[in-house]
Design a protein around this nucleic acid. Sequence first.
DNA 1: CAAGTCGGGACGTGTT
DNA 2: TAACACGTCCCGACTT
Length: 200
Amino acid sequence: MDFLEEYYRQNRDHSWGNLDDVCWTTSVSVDDPSRDHHHQHLACSPEPLLPFLVMVTSAVEMSWGKKTGDVFQRNDDISASPASSNHPLAGRKTRLFHFLFEMLEDPSMAHCVSWVPAAVPAAAADGAGVFRFSSGNKDQVAALWGQRKGNKRPMTYQKMSRALRNYARSGEIFKVKKKLTYQFGTETLRSLKQCRQGRH
DNA sequence: CAAGTCGGGACGTGTT
DNA sequence: TAACACGTCCCGACTT
């Protein structure tokens, strides 16, 4: 993954601008033809490293936008959740669970991480908040997260899952007794959905 | 059995 | 300075 680390360094300083001035958003159109192009490339390229890099770069292109008034609602909303009412951290940078929610809301990331349909339909309507990483692509999500944070070293699923486990104590995300499967806390999910609606 | 996944302790880092 | 939210490393246990 050294290539990715090098890629970060080369692009972070002059292409993305100040990290504080950018935000995570899914506001870019799903129909963007360049994305289809990237994903076709991803699907058919024989080169093992290139598709990943293309995947990451395209995700960066479509997911990093300049801060704007109508889409930039993040932790302020999250901080209102009861799990963190009177939260001392309001206004901080994007947190991991919020990033994951954005990933889950992006159809083009479905091959990496996706919602798990609830066993009971009624529960699905209520929003079970269960999601699962793809065994083959879980590290791509992690890599994007590391990129999002501007980490010096590439993020891996191992390390990201460590952070995920810490959420169990605060009740934001729980581990489900199934492989690569986690679940948002009910209040966390509610806040995230509220945050999403606030953007539309 | 091997590889993958999970759980958590301990300490480091950057931000607020 | 301290709290916070991870990031990193590591090791053992468990599952596939």
